[in-house]
Simulated assay, not measured.
Amino acid sequence: MNTKSNHKLLQFIRWALIAVLVLVLIIIGHIESSLKRDFAVFLNSWTSSPNLFPYNQYLTSNVSRLVNLAYRIVYIILLFSITHLYFMDFNISKFAMLFYTSLFIFTFILYVIAYEAQSAPLHVVAFRIDSFLVSPMPVILLIPAFYLTKHH
């Protein structure tokens, strides 16, 4: 194989991976509730043994929070992977990672503050940012923004 053929093959593989990740993102979004339910059942069965984990009482009472946290982390990893594979640029990937991580931490902090302050309006703000984060919107916004920045 020559260099041009290798490049075309790598490009094809890259675009195929992006397509698969987008498809996984769509499927995960479509089956979100059943996925979370199944993961909650798994966590409940895993934490029911007192010898497996010393904090099983805390885990058992907070399974839904752990399930939502795990779902968000998986979703963010998928979003980051799509952005990284699309550009294959270290600086853009670094910015995307900072963007997703910052939004995730900011949302988490807002949820904690809203809970502690019993502030329904702040909880709504945290929920809206969280809904944005766990949607395809960050990729839909970042890819054109990076593309325009890179080509101008």
Score class of each variant (00 low, 15 high):
Leu21Trp: 11
Ser48Glu: 15
Trp15Met: 06
Leu10Ile: 10
Arg128Cys: 09
Gln57His: 03
Val134Thr: 07
Val22His: 00
Leu35Ser: 14
Thr83His: 06
His7Val: 08
Trp46His: 15
Phe108Arg: 04
Ile73Glu: 06
Glu116Asp: 12
Ala70Ile: 01
Asp38Gly: 08
Ile109Lys: 05
Tyr75Pro: 06
Phe127Pro: 04
Ser119Cys: 05
Ser81Trp: 11
Val139Pro: 07
His84Cys: 12
Thr149Phe: 11
Arg128Val: 11
Leu43Ala: 05
Phe99Cys: 04
Ser33Arg: 13
Thr107Ile: 11
Pro144Asn: 10
Tyr115Thr: 05
Thr101Asp: 02
Ile113His: 00
Val74Tyr: 00
Lys8Ile: 09
Pro121Lys: 07
Asp130Phe: 09
Val41Cys: 10
Pro50Glu: 10
Val74Asp: 02
His30Cys: 09
Asn6His: 10
Asn2Ile: 14
Ile18Arg: 07
Asn6Asp: 07
Phe108Trp: 08
Ser45Glu: 13
Asp130Ser: 14
Val125Phe: 12
Thr101Leu: 14
Ile76Gln: 07
Ile18Lys: 01
Leu21Gly: 00
Phe106Asn: 04
Thr3Gly: 08
Tyr111Ala: 10
Val139Arg: 06
Ala40Phe: 15
Ile129Val: 10
Leu103Ala: 06
Phe106Met: 04
Asn62Arg: 13
Ala126Ser: 13
Leu133Cys: 00
Ala114Leu: 04
Val74Cys: 15
Val22Thr: 08
Phe108Thr: 05
Pro144Ala: 07
